[in-house]
Computed example of a mutant assay.
Amino acid sequence: MNTVTLGVASREAITRSFAAAMRGEQQGEFISFATPELLLKTLTQLRWDILKKMTGAGAMSIRELARRVGRDVRRVHDDVLVLLNVGVLERAENGDIGFPYDAVHVDFTLQAEAA
C-alpha cells in the first residue's frame, strides 16, 4: 500500500530527513506543513473530501472530480489549485490531476503552550 503522511515538521526536521535520504535511508512519503494551523487551513473539509475521493482513484479531470464530490467545477478547480500549489496533488501531462496514494496518515502533536 502506497501511504503518504501529512504532518507538521520544522525546517530542521525536514533538513535532517533530507540528509538521511541522501545517505540512502528510507524516509517514506511525507507532505509537511510548518504549523498545525497551516495544515488545517490548507486541508479544509471540502479539500479533504477531494483527497478522500482521489485516494487510490488514479488521475482524473477536474470535471470528473467535481462530479464525484458533487460540487461546482469552478469551486473544485479553485481547491485543486491550492492543493497543487502546496504539493498535495500532482498534474499529469494530459492535464488531469492525481493523488498517487492508496492511503493517507495525518500526524501532528498538539502541545500545551508555555505559561
Results as ranks from 00 to 15, higher is better:
107 D>R: 15
23 R>L: 15
69 V>E: 13
52 K>D: 14
112 A>S: 12
82 V>P: 05
39 L>Y: 10
35 T>E: 10
82 V>D: 08
69 V>T: 15
75 R>Y: 03
56 G>L: 03
36 P>C: 10
79 D>H: 11
11 R>K: 09
72 D>K: 00
30 F>N: 12
61 S>W: 05
23 R>E: 14
67 R>I: 00
81 L>A: 10
31 I>K: 14
53 K>G: 02
58 G>I: 06
58 G>F: 02
4 V>F: 02
109 T>G: 01
59 A>S: 15
67 R>N: 04
107 D>Q: 15
27 Q>I: 03
61 S>L: 07
102 D>W: 02
54 M>H: 08
46 L>A: 13
72 D>N: 10
8 V>Q: 01
26 Q>W: 09
79 D>Y: 10
72 D>W: 00
99 F>G: 05
3 T>L: 07
62 I>F: 02
32 S>L: 09
9 A>Q: 14
33 F>T: 08
3 T>I: 10
94 N>H: 05
11 R>E: 13
18 F>P: 00
29 E>T: 03
63 R>W: 04
70 G>P: 04
49 D>F: 02
57 A>R: 11
73 V>N: 07
51 L>D: 04
108 F>T: 08
89 L>T: 09
89 L>G: 06
21 A>P: 01
73 V>I: 12
34 A>L: 07
33 F>Y: 11
